[in-house]
Amino acid sequence: TIDEIIKALEQAVKDNKPIQVGNYTVTSADEAEKLAKKLKKEY
């Protein structure tokens, strides 16, 4: 679900690790936030 994706992003940001979500690779908190907002609009 979208919530699980967002939790995974938040965890990756805390661990400061890049995370791959679908076609996106998120490497920073800023990118994670942008991706989360984008995904919320889509779903």
Results as ranks from 00 to 15, higher is better:
residue 25 T to H: 14
residue 26 V to R: 00
residue 24 Y to V: 15
residue 41 K to D: 15
residue 31 E to F: 04
residue 34 K to Q: 14
residue 24 Y to Q: 13
residue 5 I to W: 10
residue 18 P to M: 08
residue 24 Y to I: 15
residue 4 E to L: 09
residue 21 V to I: 15
residue 12 A to H: 04
residue 42 E to L: 13
residue 35 L to K: 00
residue 25 T to R: 04
residue 11 Q to F: 01
residue 40 K to G: 06
residue 24 Y to F: 14
residue 39 L to I: 08
residue 13 V to L: 07
residue 34 K to N: 09
residue 7 K to G: 06
residue 1 T to I: 09
residue 35 L to T: 00
residue 26 V to G: 04
residue 22 G to T: 01
residue 28 S to Q: 02
residue 9 L to H: 00
residue 4 E to D: 13
residue 33 E to L: 15
residue 24 Y to S: 11
residue 24 Y to N: 12
residue 9 L to W: 00
residue 16 N to P: 03
residue 27 T to N: 15
residue 23 N to C: 15
residue 33 E to I: 12
residue 9 L to C: 00
residue 8 A to H: 05
residue 38 K to V: 06
residue 13 V to P: 02
residue 6 I to S: 01
residue 2 I to Q: 01
residue 8 A to K: 08
residue 14 K to Q: 08
residue 43 Y to K: 09
residue 36 A to Q: 06
residue 31 E to S: 02
residue 8 A to S: 07
residue 3 D to Y: 11
residue 11 Q to W: 01
residue 38 K to R: 13
residue 43 Y to M: 14
residue 33 E to T: 06
residue 8 A to I: 12
residue 2 I to N: 03
residue 31 E to V: 04
residue 36 A to E: 04
residue 10 E to N: 06
residue 16 N to Y: 05
residue 33 E to K: 12
residue 24 Y to E: 13
residue 15 D to K: 04
residue 22 G to H: 06
residue 33 E to Y: 04
residue 19 I to M: 09
residue 10 E to R: 06
residue 8 A to D: 02
residue 12 A to P: 01
residue 22 G to Q: 03
residue 40 K to V: 07
residue 6 I to D: 01
residue 23 N to L: 04
residue 32 A to R: 00
residue 38 K to P: 00
residue 41 K to P: 07
residue 1 T to M: 11
residue 40 K to E: 10
residue 40 K to D: 04
residue 39 L to E: 02
residue 32 A to Q: 01
residue 6 I to R: 02
residue 4 E to R: 06
residue 15 D to Q: 10
residue 4 E to V: 06
residue 39 L to R: 00
residue 10 E to S: 03
residue 21 V to Q: 02
residue 19 I to R: 04
residue 18 P to V: 08
residue 19 I to F: 08
residue 3 D to V: 12
residue 1 T to R: 11
residue 11 Q to C: 04
residue 42 E to T: 04
residue 39 L to P: 03
residue 15 D to L: 08
residue 3 D to A: 14
residue 2 I to W: 12
residue 25 T to G: 11
residue 20 Q to P: 02
residue 25 T to W: 15
residue 17 K to P: 01
residue 6 I to H: 01
residue 27 T to D: 14
residue 8 A to W: 11
residue 37 K to C: 14
residue 37 K to Q: 14
residue 10 E to F: 08
residue 37 K to Y: 00
residue 4 E to M: 11
residue 15 D to R: 04
residue 42 E to W: 13
residue 1 T to K: 10
residue 14 K to V: 11
